[in-house]
Every structure is written in structure tokens, then in C-alpha cells.
């Protein structure tokens, strides 16, 4: 994704936007991992940056790649592919880090590429399929449809906090 594209998306939202929360209902940031398109609620996203040097931190699960320096803030970074037990992929110039903020804690998510900000109406969202009780499906908030595409909507808080408990030695 180019700088300008990224900037455009960044301009769509501010860093501190409690006021904007209401206007952000139903808006999702879509991104690609593997062959699928995923989406997360925009109100959790603080910014998007290109992939940069990650400093490894010991004693962490595989998907916890380490930390990056974001304008003076040190933020942990999760490789979503590895989190979903997919094959890892080399980082290229389209790889992005989506920085989300949950409960005042920031964390970065490494994704293959970022697409755009879209609005999905509640009637366009179907509940997650309960066919497979796999671990990953727990993080799925629902399946959304936009512009003919199917977007897997993720519950970010579940994605991050479940793993918090699992991390131990």
C-alpha cells in the first residue's frame, strides 16, 4: 500500500477520538491475510504503519513477534498469520502494522496488506458459523458482506485478551 493510500486511511480517523466513537459505528478497516479479507472495528484503530524493524522479546509465544518503536512509543507486535496458525509469509512493502488500542494498551497487528475503511450495516452481518469450534472462530464477531465481498469481522478484544491468559511459562 502506498504512502498516500495509507495517509488517506490515517486521515479518516484521529488518534484520540472518544467523541468520534458514535460516528464510527459500523465502520470497519478491511485488510488481507492470505486469501481472505478481514475487518476490525475502526474505533479501536489508532494508526497504520508500514512494517519496520521488530525487536524480539524473549519468552513470548511465536505470534508475539516483539516490539517496534513508534515515534518514541514502544509497542508490542503480533503476527496475525501466526496467531491464526497460518503459514508465515515474508514481509514485503505491502505488509502493514495496524496499531489498535484496547483498554489503553496499544498493540500492533501485522497483516499482509490493508485495504480500506468501509461501512457495513448491521443487516449485512451474519453471525459466525458455529460449525467448527476451532480456537480461531472464537475471535470472529460475524461475517459481513460489502460490495460483493465477504469480510470476516474480528473481535479484537477477544483476539488479544484470550492470549494474555495463555501466555505463561
Amino acid at each position: 500500500m502506498s504512502e498516500s493510500q495509507r495517509k488517506e486511511i490515517n486521515d479518516d480517523f484521529d488518534l484520540e477520538d472518544d467523541e468520534n466513537e458514535d460516528t464510527q459505528e459500523g465502520k470497519y478497516l478491511s485488510f488481507r491475510i492470505g486469501g481472505e479479507v478481514y475487518g476490525i472495528e475502526i474505533r479501536h484503530v489508532t494508526e497504520i504503519v508500514g512494517i519496520q524493524k521488530i525487536t524480539e522479546v524473549p519468552d513470548m509465544p511465536q505470534y508475539m513477534k516483539g516490539v517496534i518503536n513508534l515515534r518514541g512509543n514502544v509497542i508490542p507486535v503480533v503476527d496475525v498469520r501466526l496467531r491464526f496458525h497460518m503459514q508465515p509469509r515474508d514481509y514485503d512493502d505491502r505488509t502493514c502494522v495496524i496499531v489498535v488500542n484496547i483498554n489503553d494498551a496499544s498493540i500492533g497487528l501485522v497483516v499482509d496488506s490493508v485495504k480500506e475503511v468501509i461501512s457495513i450495516l448491521p443487516d449485512q452481518i451474519s453471525p459466525a458459523p458455529s460449525v467448527s469450534k476451532g480456537e480461531v472462530t472464537r475471535y470472529i464477531k460475524g461475517i459481513g458482506r460489502f460490495d460483493g465481498e465477504v469480510i470476516i469481522l474480528l473481535a479484537i478484544d477477544k483476539l488479544l485478551y484470550n492470549n494474555q491468559i495463555k501466555v505463561s511459562l
Partner: peptide, 15 residues
Amino acid sequence: GLSNFLSSARGISGC
């Protein structure tokens, strides 16, 4: 300080 997500890293007190 090290983020809460990394609190279980022993031997590291910060960055």
C-alpha cells in the same frame, strides 16, 4: 515500560 502484553517476559524490566 514494557507493555502489559509482554509482562511475562522474565529477565526484562523494560526497554
